[in-house]
């Protein structure tokens, strides 16, 4: 019996030991050892794309100076109105220029009267020069009215001969400067604004606005009477050379004709209303 017990006990002991060893080895198997693995796919690394080049913005080309513009109480242009030699006949080459002049006149309705003034150099007979400059100014006026549709009531013409030279007549260059046609603002609507300045805030407030006609240049006969195309005689003394252009030049300072505004009033420029 005892031996049986012992056998049984021994058997139990052995089986228990085997179980524990198995457990221990299981634990040891989970601890330690190596797991080998490889990435399922490669990581893709794309370089950061370089910043898109800034769009090339075309630099706006500086606006060319207008061919014709109303400035300082006159119509300014760099070119010359071309006349046939010793005649008051405008060459077709000047049609485009006269068209642009007409456009400026039309776009500035505040200009009520424009004086077209012809000038000559001192070369030749003074009387003849005066007549020719007058006729040329009239020819220009006529062209603007008939071909460009400018209101004749807004235009007047006169000729000064060599009376108002802008350069001494001592060289051909200077004489050329004196041969010219000018467009002077004779009358214009001027808007006068009476402004009060707040002494504390310094803010300006318009108290009164009024528009009044301002006479800058005395004009002679009305345009309708003066506008007749005239062709000068070729027998007369040559006041102008063949193909002689009449150059627009600096107008006499119209500023002198400006009325002095009251101390509290701000007169706008005669040419453009100040808003």
């Amino acid at each position: 019996m005892l031996s049986r017990f012992r056998n049984c006990n021994l058997h139990s002991l052995v089986s228990t030991s085997l179980g524990v060893i198995a457990l221990s080895s299981l634990g040891l198997a989970g601890c330690g050892g190596v797991t080998t693995f490889a990435g399922s796919s490669a990581f893709a690394i794309a370089a950061t794309p370089p910043p898109a080049p800034a769009p090339v913005v075309a630099k706006p080309e500086p606006k060319p100076a207008p061919r014709v513009e109303l400035r300082d109480n006159k119509i300014e242009f760099k070119e010359k109105i071309q006349f046939e030699a010793n005649k008051a006949v405008i060459k077709p080459a000047s049609d485009a220029l006269l068209h642009d002049i007409a456009e400026v006149i039309k776009k500035n309705p505040q200009v009520k009267k424009l004086s077209i003034e012809g000038h000559a150099s001192a070369e030749g007979d003074a009387k003849r020069n005066k007549t020719l400059s007058e006729q040329r100014a009239k020819a220009v006026l006529e062209h603007l009215v008939k071909k460009e549709g400018v209101d004749g009531a807004r235009l007047a013409s006169r000729g000064w001969g060599s009376e108002k030279g802008i350069a001494p007549n001592d060289s051909e260059d200077n004489r050329e400067k004196n041969r010219r046609v000018e467009f002077l603002v004779a009358e214009a609507d001027v808007t006068v604004k009476k402004v009060e300045i707040d002494p504390t805030s310094g803010k300006e407030s318009i108290v009164e606005t009024k528009t009044e006609a301002l006479k800058l240049v005395d004009t002679p006969a009305p345009a309708s009477n003066a506008a007749k195309p005239v062709e000068s005689s070729s027998k007369a003394a040559p006041a102008a050379k063949a193909g002689e252009p009449a150059k627009a030049a600096a107008a006499p300072k119209a500023a002198a004709a400006k009325p002095s505004a009251p101390a509290t009033a701000k007169p706008a420029t005669p040419a453009q209303e100040k808003k």
Binding site: V34, T35, F37, G39, A42
Partner: peptide, 17 residues
């Protein structure tokens, strides 16, 4: 951390613009 040492192999693909 893992009970077992890991032995890994991984790849990266680099692409220039």
């Amino acid at each position: 951390p893992d009970a077992r040492t890991g032995q890994g192999t991984f790849s990266w693909n680099f692409a220039a613009p």
